[in-house]
């Protein structure tokens, strides 16, 4: 019955979009391209939220800041290379290829440390205690970035191929190399994650721990290691996301992760929190919705639209799009 309401709302949205699409198809497709690129980045961050929530039921408020810190660190490391912002050189390519794994590993290490210091000691504490330390860690990470570069917007080197020669125009719609890069990288990373979760032993351990921690422990799974691995993998994706964000927008600021994190968290809930493909799809959908809302409703209403959807989804279809129950306590 409630699902019925959900479908009606979805249908109405599709019809509204379709009328826009018919009236100006070029602009519609163009906006879709923007939305997909943004959504790919939200998806990368949302995965970290959904994995951590799935396994220890913690809304990890620090995750968005891990994402931003990834961008800051990659900008710093890129500074060591003789990169050329004006045109695309071989050095740029080497720098990008090298910095990606380095940043991901650094962020993974940082996130494991955060988990070890701030969350693990509180595993048996009252439920809200780790939530507060998560908020605290979010302040700490923002504080570090603030101390590092201050409140101003930080420039991220513009080293991806850009300019008129690096974009294709199909029927009035242009797709830049940057758009393609963001989408392809995100798809590759999500696919790798899915393979990891479904095919490896550690992935299996993570799924088992998420389902029932005590039972998993009885089966001989090292819970602490599994949870640490979850944080590590979440941060790999967030670190990559931060760097991709920087490469795409060329701007970062210290509290970027706060709002991006909220939107990514919404994506995770939208897709069904705890559900990995759900988070990826949710991220892309939220990116699209934000882009459509910016264009067709007005960007000042975008936040209302996104969070209205969040509330609507929870009330009408609490399992999210792909469905997985929020663990009951």
């Amino acid at each position: 019955m409630v699902d019925f309401g959900f479908y009606i709302i979805c249908g109405a949205a599709v019809v509204l979009l379709a009328t826009q699409a018919v009236s100006n198809p070029t602009a519609f497709v163009q906006i879709t391209v923007f939305g997909l690129a943004d959504g790919a980045m939200y998806a990368l961050v949302a995965l970290g939220y959904t994995m951590v929530y799935g396994i220890i039921e913690l809304i990890n408020f620090a995750h968005g800041d891990v994402f931003t810190l990834g961008g800051y660190i990659s900008a710093a490391i890129l500074g060591f290379f003789a990169i050329n912002e004006g045109s695309f050189t071989a050095v740029n390519l080497i720098a990008i290829v090298l910095v990606f794994p380095v940043v991901m590993l650094i962020m993974g290490g940082i996130n494991i440390t955060i988990e070890r210091v701030a969350y693990r000691p509180l595993r048996n504490a009252p439920r809200l205690a780790p939530l507060i330390t998560a908020i605290g860690m979010s302040f700490v990470l923002e504080g570090i970035m603030f101390l590092w570069h201050g409140p101003a917007t930080v420039h991220f080197p513009d080293i991806l191929p850009h300019g008129p020669q690096f974009q294709t125009t199909i029927g009035g719609v242009f797709v830049t190399f940057k758009d393609g890069f963001v989408m392809v990288t995100a798809v590759v990373l999500v696919t790798l994650l899915a393979i990891f979760i479904n095919r490896t032993k550690l992935g299996k351990a993570m799924r088992a721990t998420a389902q029932d921690r005590d039972a998993a422990q009885l089966m001989g799974i090292n819970i602490n290691r599994t949870i640490a691995a979850t944080f590590f993998i979440g941060a790999l994706l967030a670190g990559a996301g931060g760097m991709i964000w920087g490469l795409y927008f060329n701007n970062l600021f210290y509290n970027l992760g706060f709002r991006t994190g909220l939107v990514a968290f919404t994506s995770a809930v939208f897709g069904g929190i705890g559900n990995i493909p759900g988070a990826a799809i949710g991220g892309v959908l939220i990116g699209l919705i934000a882009a459509y809302s910016d264009s067709y409703i007005g960007s000042k209403w975008t936040e209302v639209v996104i969070f209205g959807i969040l509330i609507g989804v929870l009330v009408l279809r609490p399992t999210g799009l792909l469905g997985m129950r929020v663990p009951e306590k």
Binding site: A27, I31, D38, S299, K300, E303
Partner: peptide
């Protein structure tokens, strides 16, 4: 005329395209 809020907008391309 369009408007945005810093907190939510990182991508102005759809607005600029309009």
């Amino acid at each position: 005329h369009s408007e945005y809020q810093k907190a939510t907008t990182s991508d102005w391309k759809s607005i600029l395209l309009n």
